[in-house]
Design a protein around this nucleic acid. Structure first.
Length: 664
RNA sequence: GCCCCCGUAGCUCAGCGGAUAGAGCAUCUGCCUUCUAAGCAGAGGGCCGCUGGUUCGAGUCCAGCCGGGGGCACCA
């Protein structure tokens, strides 16, 4: 148990009360936070709803205010409440027993939530392994990683996958660049990787050059097709080069993500899905269940298609709503392969990968990667797959194929737990014209008129993740050095890294998933205002109070038993006491915030809560100089407040993948 | 043509059907001999795109429209 607001128990009591008194069955009732603390801790507009339901049931009109008043007198019997008031046109405002709740919050130490059944498989990052990661990829990874942290904190078992498309067009393009544009052999590519300090940056540039090279002579696209085929068949120099390049770039991506405290349990590679014939198995299943049908006539003649739920949408001359899974030439589409992969995720394929260990991650946890070679397989390995649902963090542009994948999987396994599977779609990161200019991009007139410019790996246009993190760390280091000249270099560097990580993660999470982020350097590089470092700073301030005091929070909290209920009551009594209570009770609302955020897969809700809590804490810090407080009991209570908020703030930050340094 | 997302302060964005719509940035004004000013306080700034509808109550739900972005392959 962590400190929490007892809104659920009050709500349930009201539901029962209404059922007994009025014979009206409400499954859930709305509650809200009153606009001011003086109006109470919880408000229920339930009397309005009740009046409506009573009128529908009996035909009689009821005054909401009167109903609220009836409910209020009954509700006051509930232990833990100080009083209940009726306000406005019929609001039921509940006031908690502050002294009792505060003592409870201070004493609840916190333990993990009860484990929920099943296993969620979260796939995120999944960057094409052919070039350095850019800020858009980082949004994906930070979002996915944060959702994983939230789900785990909410009691879910989560397995984290990073899908490696090592046999796709993008890898093929870089292979074409090395083999044909630059005329390298696989051995020379390996030598370049050794001599270049940033192989991923080299590939970034090369990929852009290949795009222009195709553009200059379209017949070169034949090389892409040939290379892609060789990679898929695992033959020749192209396959060797592709395997090497993808492997190296994946290492670079893992290193970049480690800087943001992001890691994975399994890297699932597309090459295995091909070589281990996942599709052949899935094909049989899909045919058996009738999920796909063979077309003998019409536009899709000779194809296996997944019929649209709504056949009327197949209009002559328009796009076909049926999704082709196997082409008339017998080859399978991406959607088909992805259905096979997702059937594996749910343990419904009847086939498994082989696994081999990769290096441990930055926290020392073993990372595994799939392999198609039985001789490379290492046993024992953790049990991968067999999930009850999958969650895919993929940008919103993939909504249509993702919907088709889920449809295909559900056709075979329509378990309600599987139905929880979802595409966690998020919008892209674009560049402001200013940011593009700073990257040295020449804008066309049309682009200059726009408010945002899309990033393009193909054009080499984008903010590289490591460049941005470097700048953040550099700026943070300069700030730390000026504030703490006494600290040694390594400590300063460590603090700067924590600050940089917080700034970037917070920046990417403060926008809701559906909001396009127009990347602006000034905003992203800021450490002031609504930023990650602001939150860290709040925690550091709270810790500094105890450091200066020379006692630990536990020692101080032991003193709390010396405080009488009357003293705590008095502490929260007057107008200033209302403000103190507002802070304490807001700090107790993390769990309900987390529950809502996890249910919506929306980290922004935690972000806004944490920022709000930090802001309120900073005001408290400013208004109450704790260490100079003369009244011993009051000082103890102020310290207890500071520690309660600090604990909840640190928990909130941990959900966001942010740690507060000891000093900053 | 169909589908999805967005439209809220000068800018960037929050806002579970509920009480007087908020924050950061920017502008202006105060506050460092104190537990760190990466901070705090204050001021100005809003037909919540438009029009209807549902509701005791709509920025929030529904319909239509306007504007911006994305999607609708025998590509991935």
């Amino acid at each position: 148990m962590f400190p929490s607001f007892p809104s659920q128990s009050v709500k349930q009591y009201l539901i029962d009360l209404i059922r007994d008194r009025f014979d009206i069955a409400l499954t859930d009732i709305a509650s809200e936070s009153p606009p001011r603390t003086s109006l109470g801790d919880l408000a229920f507009p339930v009397a309005f709803e009740l009046a409506k339901r009573l009128k529908a049931a009996t035909g009689e009109k009821h005054n909401p205010r009167q109903l609220a008043s009836t409910l209020a007198s009954a509700l006051e019997q509930l232990p833990g409440l100080a009083r209940v008031e009726v306000a406005g046109a019929g609001y039921l405002n509940v006031f908690f027993d502050r002294a009792a709740l505060f003592r409870e919050w201070i004493c609840t130490a916190g333990s993990p939530p009860a484990a929920k059944p099943g296993k969620l498989i979260v796939e995120h990052t999944s960057i094409n392994p052919n070039k350095a990661a850019h800020i858009g990829h980082v949004r994906n990874a930070v979002l996915g990683d944060t959702v994983v942290r939230m789900l785990r904190a909410a009691g879910e078992t989560v397995e984290v996958h990073n899908y490696i498309d090592n046999t796709g067009v993008q890898v093929a393009d870089v292979v074409v660049g090395f083999l044909y544009l630059e005329g390298r052999t696989p051995d020379v590519i390996k030598a370049i990787a050794e001599s270049e300090s940033r192989f991923d940056y080299y590939c970034w540039d090369l990929y852009a050059r290949v795009g222009a090279w195709y553009e200059a002579d379209k017949s070169r696209l034949d090389l892409r097709a040939r290379t892609l085929h060789e990679i898929e068949a695992d033959e020749g120099a192209a396959a060797e080069a592709g395997e090497f390049i993808a492997g190296r770039i994946v290492q670079a991506h893992l290193a970049t993500m480690a800087r943001l405290d992001i890691s994975y349990e399994l890297l699932a590679r597309e090459s295995e899905i091909l070589h281990l014939h996942f599709w052949a198995h899935a094909f049989e299943r899909l045919k058996q269940t009738g999920a796909i049908v063979y077309e003998t006539e019409g536009r899709n003649r000779g194809c296996w298609v997944m019929p649209s739920e709504d056949a009327s949408r197949n209009v002559e001359g328009e796009h076909d709503a049926d999704k082709i899974i196997v082409r008339s030439n017998g080859t399978v589409t991406y959607t088909g392969k992805d259905i096979a992969y997702h059937l594996w995720k749910l343990g419904k394929l009847g086939l498994d990968f082989h696994y081999r260990p990769l290096a441990p991650d930055h926290r020392g946890n073993q990372v595994w990667v799939t392999t198609s070679r039985a001789d490379q397989a290492v046993d024992p390995h953790p049990s991968f797959g067999n999930g009850t649902a999958f969650l895919n963090v993929i940008d919103v542009g993939q909504s249509y194929p993702q919907a088709n994948v889920k449809r295909g999987v559900m056709a075979i396994d329509h378990d309600e737990r599987v139905a929880r599977s979802a595409h966690l779609a998020y919008e892209k990161v674009t560049l402001t014209p200013e940011a593009a200019a700073e990257l040295g991009v020449e804008l066309s007139d049309a682009d200059a008129q726009r408010r945002q410019i899309g990033m393009s790996g193909r054009k080499g246009l984008g903010v590289k993740a490591d460049d941005l993190i470097d700048r953040l760390e550099q700026n943070a280091l300069a700030e730390v050095a000026s504030r703490h000249p006494d600290l040694n270099g390594d400590v300063r560097k460590g603090i700067a890294q924590q600050i940089a990580r917080a700034a970037l993660r917070y920046f990417l999470l403060k926008f809701t998933r559906t909001s396009i982020i127009a990347f602006d350097f000034r905003e992203a590089l800021s450490f002031e205002g609504e930023t990650g470092p602001y939150l860290q700073y709040s925690v550091v301030r709270a810790r500094n109070i105890f450091r200066k005091l020379g006692r630990t929070p536990d020692q101080v909290l032991a003193d709390l038993s010396d405080c009488s209920a009357e003293q705590i009551e008095a502490f929260f009594a007057d107008e200033a006491g209302d403000d103190l209570w507002a802070l304490a009770s807001f700090a107790a609302r993390l769990d309900e915030t987390l529950a809502a955020a996890a249910a919506n897969f929306e980290p922004t809700q935690v972000v806004k809560y944490a920022f709000q809590l930090a802001k309120q804490f900073n005001l408290f810090y400013h208004n109450h100089h704790i260490l100079s407080e003369a009244d011993a009991a009051r000082k103890t209570l102020l310290l207890a407040m500071a520690d309660l908020v600090r604990r909840q703030l640190e928990r909130s930050l941990a959900l966001l993948g942010i740690e507060a340094p000891e000093r900053m």
